[in-house]
Structures are given as C-alpha cells and as structure tokens.
C-alpha cells in the first residue's frame, strides 16, 4: 500500500500510467452518459406532477453530487499536501478546483431552469440552491487564492489550508442555511428526494451519476497531467516527453 502510494506520488510514473487510463476513462464516461441521459430523456416515464420537466433531474442531480464530492476531494488532497510531501496531491487539487466549480455552476443553472416550471421562478431562496451557491463561493475563494500567490509551493499550501477550513465549515453552513430556510418560509415544494419515486424513474440516475464521475476524473486527469508536465518541465523525463509530443506534431492540430 505505502509503496504503491509512493509510486503514485512519482510524477513520471503517474504521467505514464494516467496516459494509459485516460482513453478508457473517456470512453467509459461517454458511454455511461449517453446511456443514462438517453434513458432518462427517451424512456423513463414522466412524473405525475411535474410532467416531463422531471427529466432535468438526470443532469441536475449528478452535477449537484459532483459539486460536493469534488470539494471533498479538493480538501482531501489539501490534507495530503499539508501532512505528506506528495507533490502530486497539489497538482490534483489545482485541477479539481475549476472542474468542481464548473459542476457547481451546472447544478445551479439546471436547478434554476428546473425551478421556473415547478416554482414559477428561476430563483427561489431554497435551502439546497442557497447552500450550493455558497459552495460556489468557496470554490471561487480557492481559485482566487491560487491566482494571487506567485510562488507555487506557498500557493499549494495556502490553498490546502483554505480548502480544509472550508470543508470543516460546510456542515455548519449547510445546517445554518437549512435552519434559516425553515424559519423564513413554510416548507415549499421539494424538487428532489421524493420517497415515492418509482424505480423506472431513478434507475437512469445511476449511469448518469457514474458517467459524470468518470467524466470528472477524465478531465481532472487531463489537467493534472498538464500540471505535472509544467512543473517538471526542466526534468529530463518531461523534456523527453515534450520533445516527443512536439515531434509527433500534436501542436499542429486545431486552432
């Protein structure tokens, strides 16, 4: 176990092995997302109250789950940065933050679009939407802090501290927002968490959630690999790799 961890912490090994995983991850995530969303949009039955708008759930719920677990991963990586000298953990955390923030934006956007036909408004100060909005603020803080500190090592540790402080605060924030919400409005119509949801409706959620998780790992790996190459650019293995990539003409494609 420890040996494996140590190896995972070694950038060249990680770069090689992640390069091998990446295509499989991408294919699996695309397949699962296509199956799940196709199932949700075409086959799953409409809700007896909300009709077809309930199909927004198949992207909203996975995005909301990822928004939260991405912050947990960010804080977990932060804890590793603070306790063990594993450089890779920081490169992973750096990649996690913007992708997690984009998932939070996705959860907010789909949630408010869903809110229009169900609540009659794009924005309701609902406990769930509000705490996701505050989660987005936490992401913005981490991203802004990294951008503000020049020196990479200091930025890594500062962001790690902020992420860990944030994760300690998340349950308190969630609790306070829920409490605030019950105080200010009578329990409004809840969009998710209906205990009576039939299996034909929630089953497509499984491939959607799993697919979006794999998508998250695919793009985070892509970013982490970029970060590894950038940080190790003066080391010989990275020089060789950069040389090989440039020679194979990867830069010629696209814009």
């Amino acid at each position: 176990m420890w040996k494996w961890l140590h190896k995972l912490g070694s950038p060249p090994w990680f770069y090689r092995i992640s390069g091998r995983w990446l295509p499989w991850l991408a294919v699996a995530s695309a397949a699962l997302l296509l199956v799940g969303i196709g199932w949700g949009l075409l086959i799953a039955p409409p809700d007896y109250q909300q009709g077809h708008t309930v199909r927004i759930m198949y992207i909203h719920v996975p995005a909301a789950i990822l928004a939260q677990s991405a912050y947990l991963m960010l804080a977990g990586a932060g804890l590793v940065v603070l306790v063990w000298p594993v450089r890779l953990a920081d490169l992973f955390a750096e990649a996690c933050a913007p992708v997690g923030a984009s998932m939070t934006v996705l959860a907010l956007a789909t949630g408010s679009i869903w809110g229009k036909p169900t609540w009659g408004t794009y924005w309701e100060w609902d406990a769930r939407l509000t705490s996701v909005l505050i989660l987005l603020f936490l992401y913005i803080g981490v991203i802004a802090l990294r951008a503000a500190i020049r020196e990479a090592e200091a930025a890594a540790r500062a962001c790690a501290i902020l992420a860990v402080v944030g994760v300690v605060n998340i349950p308190i924030i969630k609790y306070s927002v829920e409490w605030w919400n019950t105080l200010h409005q009578p329990a409004s119509f809840r969009v998710t968490e209906k205990p009576t949801m039939p299996a034909e409706m929630w089953l497509p959620l499984l491939p959607c959630v799993l697919g979006l998780y794999l998508f998250f790992f695919t793009v985070v790996l892509m970013r982490t690999r970029n970060n590894v190459l950038r940080r190790d650019r003066r080391k010989s293995w990275a020089q060789n790799e950069i040389h090989r990539l440039n020679a194979s003409g990867e830069t010629e494609h696209g814009v």
């Binding site: 505050i134 603020f137 936490l138 913005i140 803080g141 402080v165 944030g166 605060n169 924030i173």
Partner: peptide, 17 residues
C-alpha cells in the same frame, strides 16, 4: 477584495444565527 472572497462564505452561519 480577495480577503472578502475567502472569508465571507465562512461568515454565513454567524450572520444567520
């Protein structure tokens, strides 16, 4: 402004209660 971005979300529970 950066200090506000980092800290304001953490002040939410204090403000609420």
């Amino acid at each position: 402004v950066l200090l506000f971005l980092l800290i304001l979300p953490l002040f939410v529970p204090v403000l609420v209660f």
